[in-house]
Design a protein around this nucleic acid. Structure first.
Lengths: 347, 347
DNA sequence: GACGTGGGAAGACAGATGAGCAACAAGACC
DNA sequence: GGTCTTGTTGCTCATCTGTCTTCCCACGTC
């Protein structure tokens, strides 16, 4: 608790060499000519003393901190941010980097976000990951560009900055496809009312898949509500109340699917016997815990975090030019997670 | 993108003074004697140039980084970690600190955790927050002690290190009390099978509250299962199947309560008409989205993160002596969150 | 001459790095 | 055989990173 931390000079003293030599040995500097005996000696002494480099001093001199900044919206609201952080942290750790995390409210002003980025820049992070809580277009703080950066789960309005986003269309196609594969021919979609990319792309995919399967995609029933449980309940009630209701239901997200479950229960429809349901998001807490387990589409949050970190580090280390990837966002797959909410339609 | 970052010497040059003066002005050094005109000049120039201090160099010189390390278990698995991070981040930001986060798997070895702490120490964090994903006893890495540290949501085995934990007993009392207040006299408890403090303390509180209310606490039905939805379902089935079943059910957590909901539905019991249910954890995704909304007890994750950070910073700044608080963990309240799952018993 | 005012020079923080130096060996030359 | 050149090995010195901080100095005033 009291002993001062030992530095390179303590090691040098104890090993009877200069600090230069210690530095050379410990960093395995290529051009350094040092005898094997001396190397051994230095390493042994360093080990004994429990020497660890002061990364601050190191960073000051080398202009490399080995820190990545992660500005994340609403860390707490959804478990999604946690997955992004986890993916980023593991990828970073694997390459010797660490993460500085700053939370920013989804409602924060541009100036406030700029201040967050500024804080990271003053700490001389080598790069910045900018993560949003759901896929959408964002306006970025201007100072973000002063260091390599990657956007996670969103695309910059008008900007060309490297970004990773989920494959909304592919995920929706997989979800609807799963219903068709089970034999359903009357399929409905419970959509969200927000004007975000997912809303449009999933609807588009829904209709396309049906049409491609020889069904009338344009005529398939679609009801929109707020993307919460009660919205899902109401939309499902409407969609299931009509004559000749669908036997398969694609829901915008797992929360809405949860509402659909309740609607089905109230209407005396059993899942998956009378109604097959597929969700989106794979929110474990919901999807795995509903009864029966909800088949859904997973958003690649972990993967996006890892991908962004990998490529950010590549750029920092000069192995990649982010500018080359900035023209189009990289799209990561949304795999179907099968549970028990899909079965063949009755009869 | 290309312009080198401007430093204190650039400001000095542009303002026509020495770097010493700039430093004095910008840091508002008390004993420095500098004319108001010079001060203005320096500040203006600094502003114009967009000067921001290099925190690395600053830290190297002052031996203060303004960074706190946060070692967190399983950031992704539960939203709880997110709340702790959020509480810590906001408290830290309010006092000019930033957070370095390292995730550690719940299953990580002690050496691996020690390496995580070591990484933080090499970066010279001013203090460390060590957070676990649920309240329990942990064995800490030995090197944690070399810097001020606070444990979040757990207590060190044998160690005396400052810690914050939730008030399991008080929360459980509030939960059971809510059922009694509604008029229930036959109350059951669905418990968890893990050997963690919460299991014992909640059971203890359950029996005590009943006894104190003049009921037979020792005879009240208790069923234990794994703390998942299906465990809750099975325990509820057993507890509700007997003759003269309870009209009020206290569940170990929200997931088990979710299972109890299903059991009730299958038994034809309506909630809260036939059965009142109260959970624990306030996992928004579940508690708020069940139908009817689940009355539950919130764990103070945000508050624990904030409390730990506040006191850690106080210790770093010499305003508190952590050792004084280390003998007993600090206990933070678990407030009852009322929704719609409790009503007066029938008849 | 003592004192106050405004400001600057010179380390120090901990480590990285290019240039340089001593010691010795092998050839080359007379 | 002795001296000089050249090269190699093994290691060290001085300087740099950007900022803070402890003296210290110049100038003017009473």
């Amino acid at each position: 608790m009291s002993n001062k931390t030992i530095g390179i000079k303590d090691v040098a003293l104890a090993a009877g060499v200069s600090v230069t030599t210690v530095s050379h040995v410990l960093n395995e500097v290529a051009y350094a000519r040092i005898s094997p005996e001396t190397r051994d000696k230095v390493r042994t002494v360093a080990e004994q003393l429990g020497y660890g480099p002061n990364r601050l001093a190191q960073a000051l001199r080398t202009q490399r901190t080995g820190m990545l900044g992660l500005v994340s919206e609403e860390i707490a609201t959804t478990p999604h941010a946690g997955r992004i952080i986890l993916g980023a942290d593991e990828a970073a750790k694997a390459r010797g980097y660490n993460l500085m995390i700053i939370n920013t409210p989804g409602s924060a002003s541009l100036e406030s976000r700029q201040a967050d980025v500024q804080a990271l820049l003053e700490r001389r992070v080598d790069g910045i990951l900018y993560a949003t809580m759901y896929h959408r277009n964002v306006k970025l703080p201007a100072n973000l560009g002063s260091v390599p950066s990657v956007l996670v789960d969103s695309v910059a309005t008008g900007g060309n900055i490297t970004a990773v986003i989920p494959d909304e269309e592919g995920g929706a196609r997989a979800a609807v496809g799963a219903l068709l594969d089970a034999g359903h021919t009357r399929v409905g979609f419970i959509n969200n009312t927000d004007d975000v990319p997912a809303t449009h792309e999933r609807l588009q995919a829904f209709r396309s898949v049906l049409t491609e399967a020889g069904l009338d995609g344009d005529a398939a029933p679609v009801e929109s509500e707020v993307s919460e449980v009660h919205g899902g309940y109401e939309a499902a009630m409407r969609i299931l109340a009509g004559g000749n209701p669908p036997t398969g239901l694609f829901c915008y997200n797992d929360r809405m699917a949860m509402g659909a479950y309740r609607a089905a229960a109230e209407l005396g429809l059993s899942i998956p016997g009378d109604l097959s349901v597929v969700g989106f998001d794979d929110q474990e807490l919901i999807a795995a815990n509903l009864y029966p387990g909800l088949t859904t589409v997973a958003l690649p949050h972990y993967e996006m975090g890892a991908w962004a970190t990998e490529h950010l580090i590549d750029a920092i280390e000069g192995k990649t030019d982010l500018a080359l990837m900035a023209t189009h966002p990289t799209i990561l797959g949304c795999p179907l997670v099968s549970r028990e909410s899909i079965a063949a339609p009755r009869q």
